[in-house]
Simulated assay, not measured.
Amino acid sequence: MSGSVPQVWIAASNGRDMIRADAIVIVCLDGGGRVTAQLHDEAKVSVTLVDGSAGVHPPADFHRQLLRAVAELADSSGAQLVRADRDDRGWHWITEPL
């Protein structure tokens, strides 16, 4: 990313790894409730962003909600992190500055 474009990062489901949003070419939500992102490298690496298989599945449009959050953050200043969270209200994306 250039120095003038804000960096948007997405936290992986393991809680340790972060993926730069502009490295993603495909975001998928499978029938098991898992949201994965395929990166644009030559190895076609996929990263799990949400592992909904161990409990309540995210909503059917959860991957679209992620794209909406990333698009909104692209207009913000500074580096931002997007991460999935599940509480008593269900699944949602949380954004925070890095």
Score class of each variant (00 low, 15 high):
9 W>R: 13
98 L>H: 01
11 A>E: 00
7 Q>L: 13
26 I>P: 01
86 R>F: 09
29 L>G: 06
24 I>Q: 00
59 P>G: 07
23 A>H: 10
37 A>H: 01
45 V>Y: 03
68 R>S: 06
12 A>C: 10
28 C>M: 14
89 R>Y: 03
70 V>F: 05
43 A>V: 11
85 D>A: 14
87 D>T: 00
66 L>V: 07
52 G>R: 02
77 S>T: 15
61 D>C: 08
90 G>Q: 02
60 A>R: 11
79 A>R: 00
97 P>W: 05
14 N>Q: 12
88 D>H: 09
47 V>G: 00
41 D>S: 13
29 L>H: 05
97 P>D: 07
74 A>Y: 08
56 V>I: 14
71 A>G: 08
86 R>V: 12
64 R>D: 14
77 S>I: 14
36 T>N: 01
17 D>E: 15
77 S>H: 13
19 I>H: 03
94 I>A: 07
40 H>E: 11
23 A>K: 08
37 A>V: 05
75 D>P: 00
77 S>V: 15
26 I>Q: 04
2 S>F: 10
43 A>S: 15
5 V>L: 13
7 Q>W: 03
38 Q>K: 15
12 A>S: 10
33 G>Y: 10
19 I>V: 15
27 V>A: 06
37 A>G: 02
54 A>Q: 09
90 G>K: 02
44 K>I: 03
54 A>W: 04
2 S>L: 13
78 G>I: 07
21 A>E: 02
60 A>C: 09
57 H>I: 10
33 G>V: 13
73 L>G: 02
77 S>M: 13
54 A>L: 09
23 A>Y: 06
9 W>N: 09
51 D>M: 03
8 V>P: 03
60 A>L: 11
95 T>P: 03
69 A>C: 11
8 V>F: 02
83 R>V: 07
96 E>T: 11
41 D>Q: 11
13 S>Q: 14
85 D>Y: 09
3 G>H: 10
80 Q>N: 14
28 C>F: 10
67 L>T: 12
31 G>A: 10
41 D>I: 08
48 T>F: 00
25 V>Y: 09
42 E>W: 07
69 A>I: 04
81 L>G: 06
37 A>I: 00
68 R>C: 02
31 G>E: 07
62 F>D: 00
85 D>M: 12
86 R>S: 09
38 Q>T: 15
45 V>S: 04
57 H>K: 15
27 V>M: 06
36 T>M: 02
2 S>P: 06
45 V>F: 01
89 R>H: 01
26 I>A: 05
23 A>L: 10
